[in-house]
Design a protein around this nucleic acid. Structure first.
Length: 415
RNA sequence: GGAAGGUUGGCAGAGUGGUCUAACGCGCCGCACUUGAAAUGCGGUAUCCCGGAAACGGGAUCGGAGGUUCGAAUCCUCCACCUUCCGCCA
């Protein structure tokens, strides 16, 4: 969550920020009004309690009985306002760094680096679903009957490719010193809110299990961040880098068009994720490190990609700065997002209470998250970029030791 | 899912209704003594909220949430977690 102090002392800066993010600014005044009431009531309650402590120690029992009623009234009044105040503060997104690219939406993001040559085909390249169905490694038809639209079976070499990708990314990152973790995929609402991932807008995107009052995570990030919950890090602990693997669940409400086809945008996918806690003064450096890890991963796959700087209007709500990696998708003749890399500064750590002692004062550490490798979209990129005229697909060299095969051909029912 | 025991400050650990602004100890920080160190002595040593430029003042917190009481670490209820046992399961 955002620092309440900044909203109080610098509301104009916050309004500016909301405008830059294409959000409504009345949130600021709504919050300030509630906060004002809350503060007034809080000091009234504190006074009443101070009096109660005094009366009680002086054994003025009758007076204390009367005063107790006043305390009770104030408490119930405050409870309401406090709840409202908390809900409102959760709606504020993080404040972008001052030098973040200004822009209203996706169209104003800026490509800052392009790597690899776009493949030229001397035949008409097919899209990933056509390739995957012909090879019998992707099955969305059965999945839609079993689970509904936007689910898929990965089969045969497709399934094996998933495990190879996971091994590839995991090994690479563990070698770099990341600590491996398999986090829970269910999360309690209050922790989800603390992570800044359950604002009113975001609720639509989540799967919720009512009976147990838990949400399914949209990313391993969501339960990896809480590894730092209520923790005070020592300077020498940082940066603390985790690499996690989890299935991710997303409603993908409101998407349409090309993206409904195949496995580009599905309700369930697996992902390797980096999460890092950094000294507050070194998070920009750490951000670049995580981006370099992503480039190492994508560079190793020999798939053309570009690095994109995300503008203020398109950035995630928790982010102070964001980059995406986009891989070339031949059937769409464009680059599509396959990874993102975010510095959330103290936005999530304030919520979960992850701190470091600097001098004699506690300060929030910074947290960063970055995609390690995402299964569906990476498989799309491999199938489409590495397809051959006969319908077979070549496996990138770096993956071959994990797949055990170099090519996916139609093998009529066997692995 | 069932049963029993537990959860107190950085650690260890006392405390079963007011003397708790939480004992004693260890650790840590500062000062004194010392050529230096050890030992010793003295003082300090949690987090959060509100007000304040600050000094400071007030409030909250003994796993969490409610309750009883003028007053709760202490009594009651529910929940979470830990330990052990039973059941079930991969």
């Amino acid at each position: 969550m955002i620092d309440i102090e900044i909203v109080r002392k610098n509301p104009d800066k916050i309004r500016e920020m909301l405008v830059a993010r294409n959000m409504q600014t009345e949130l600021v005044d709504q919050f300030l009004a509630v906060d004002e009431d809350w503060r007034k009531l809080t000091s009234q309650l504190d006074e009443a309690r101070a009096l109660q402590n005094k009366l009680s120690s002086e054994k003025k029992i009758e007076e204390a009985k009367k005063n107790k009623e006043i305390i009770k009234d104030k408490e119930s009044e405050i409870a309401q306002i406090e709840g409202r105040r908390y809900e409102l503060i959760l709606e504020f997104p993080n404040i972008p760094f001052g030098d973040v690219l200004k822009g209203k939406d996706e169209s104003e993001n800026k490509s800052i680096k392009t790597v690899g040559d776009i493949p030229k085909f001397d035949f008409e390249p097919k899209d990933h679903l056509d390739i995957g169905e012909a090879l019998d490694i992707i099955d969305t038809k059965t999945a839609s009957q079993v689970s509904g639209s936007r689910f898929a079976y990965l089969k045969k070499q497709g399934a094996l490719l998933e495990f190879a990708l996971i091994q590839y990314a995991l090994n690479l990152l563990v070698k770099e010193g990341f600590e491996a973790v398999v986090p829970p995929v269910m999360i309690k609402p209050d922790v989800y809110k603390k992570m800044g991932r359950l604002s009113e807008n975001q609720k639509e995107e989540r799967f919720y299990l009512e009976k147990d009052d838990v949400y399914l995570v949209g990313s391993a990030e969501h339960t990896m961040g809480p590894l730092g919950m209520d923790k005070v890090f020592k300077e020498e602990d940082l940066p603390k880098r985790y690499v996690g693997f989890s299935t991710c669940f997303r409603r993908e409400a409101g998407s349409y068009g090309k993206d409904v086809k195949g496995i580009l945008r599905v309700h369930q996918f697996d992902k390797v994720e980096m999460y890092s806690f950094s000294h507050p003064e070194k998070s920009e450096e750490e951000h670049m490190f995580l981006l370099s890890m992503q480039e190492k991963i994508w560079g190793g796959l020999d798939i053309p990609y570009r690095v994109v700087e995300i503008c203020t209007g398109d950035m995630g709500p928790t982010d102070a700065r964001q980059f995406d990696i986009e891989a070339w998708v031949p059937s769409q003749k464009t680059y599509r997002e396959v990874a993102s890399c975010s510095n959330t500064t103290d936005y999530q750590t304030r919520g979960i209470g992850a701190k470091i002692k600097v001098g004699d004062k506690n300060q929030y550490v910074h947290a960063l998250n970055a995609t390690g490798i995402v299964i569906g979209r990476t498989i799309i990129a491999i199938l489409e970029n590495n397809q051959q005229e006969d319908g077979s697909v070549l496996i990138p060299k770096a993956l071959q030791k994990y797949t055990g095969f170099e090519i996916i051909e139609n093998s009529f029912g066997t692995n």
